[in-house]
Design a protein around this nucleic acid. Structure first.
Length: 321
DNA sequence: CGAAAGACCTGAGTGC
DNA sequence: TGCACTCAGGTCTTTC
């Protein structure tokens, strides 16, 4: 599932291929992928065709391509979205929902003059849209944009405005995050998945970071002390960074980079998908519980609340598979 | 108002 | 072989 590292791999792949190019045409194969497009200002195609792409920016799991019109093409991969760079005329990918034909008109462009940017999405949880841009409230860059520069770096698409900064963002405020945790009345994992508090983290990296920080997913956020908060942030940054270096986590063909290649971080997972196997730290058998309509994976011996294991009843655990 | 639950999706896997 | 059912989870919407 694309979380921050996977989306960043896509951003880094798209940026050099499309920066400076003009959108020459679009094809929409499935209108559901435009669910997040607000057509008040114009149709998706009308707002896109003829516009020049200025860069590629990411905040959390949201990706956007700023346009010379002052708007941006916003891309969210959802559960199964992919952005694939193809040569014009190439056979359609399965689950192709939207295609952009882009053309480099600059004389000094190093890559191919024309290419297709295919938005492929099996489960249709992802989307593309053209959105208006607004200055960030803190005045810092809106997200990570590689070496991009221009006024657009300080502008945020309106549908991303409620998304918090991610922990790899230099403008991420540790203090703001800790204050947010103290204010909340919920468990730590639910808070990590709340993109308005901290962005970029999904089910896999939430489980991995909580394991690294030795925290149980149901520990109340308000009860975390300073050391636990620090350990959690350290774990989050370390895991996200390592996953990024390894090209993200792939279990199947549902996540690939812009060239269709898989990442390698799945080999480095300590708890996610490892229920029934021994904990690498203490040897206890790892457990999977259903939580928030998804799986929570953890070590019942070393991920505890306030020094005491939460595994009060063995019947709460699913049998190892 | 915040927290939690439900809706949206499709293909792989399972049981009969 | 085929059919019904379950599971995977990010985000938006609805409900409490």
């Amino acid at each position: 599932m694309p979380e921050l590292p996977e989306v960043e791999v896509v951003r880094a792949g798209v940026e050099p291929a499309v920066t400076g190019a003009v959108v020459a045409g679009i094809e929409i194969f499935d209108e559901r992928s435009l669910r997040r497009h607000d057509a008040t200002a114009g149709s998706f195609g009308d707002l896109l065709v003829g516009r020049r792409i200025l860069g590629a920016v990411r905040r959390g799991k949201f990706l956007w391509l700023p346009l010379d019109s002052g708007r941006a093409l916003v891309i969210h991969l959802g559960m199964s979205g992919q952005v694939l760079l193809r040569s014009p005329g190439q056979t359609d990918d399965r689950h192709l929902r939207i295609r952009l034909a882009v053309e480099h008109t600059e004389s000094d462009s190093p890559g191919p003059r024309e290419l297709w940017l295919n938005f492929v999405d099996q489960r249709v949880f992802g989307s593309m849209s053209v959105d208006s841009m607004h200055p960030t409230s803190d005045g810092f860059a809106a997200g990570y944009s590689g070496r991009g520069e221009g006024e657009w770096t300080g502008l945020l698409p309106s549908q991303v405005s409620h998304i918090a900064r991610d922990p790899l963002d230099p403008a991420f405020s540790d203090d703001l995050f800790r204050a947010g945790l103290r204010r909340k009345k919920t468990g730590i994992k639910r808070a990590l998945l709340d993109q308005t508090l901290i962005s970029g983290i999904g089910n896999i990296y939430a489980d991995e970071a909580l394991f690294a920080a030795r925290l149980h997913y149901e520990q109340p956020t308000a009860s975390l002390d300073g050391a636990q908060g620090d350990a959690l942030l350290l774990a989050l940054r370390s895991i996200l960074h390592r996953a990024l270096v390894e090209g993200g986590t792939s279990f199947d063909a549902q996540y690939v980079n812009v060239n269709g290649q898989s990442g390698y971080f799945a080999h480095s997972l300590e708890v996610y998908g490892r229920q029934g196997k021994p904990c690498s730290r203490c040897g206890a058998i790892l457990v999977r519980q259903t939580f928030m309509n998804r799986g929570s994976h953890f070590c019942p011996a070393c991920q505890v609340v306030d020094g005491a294991p939460v595994c009060d009843s063995a019947t709460r655990f699913q049998a190892p598979s």
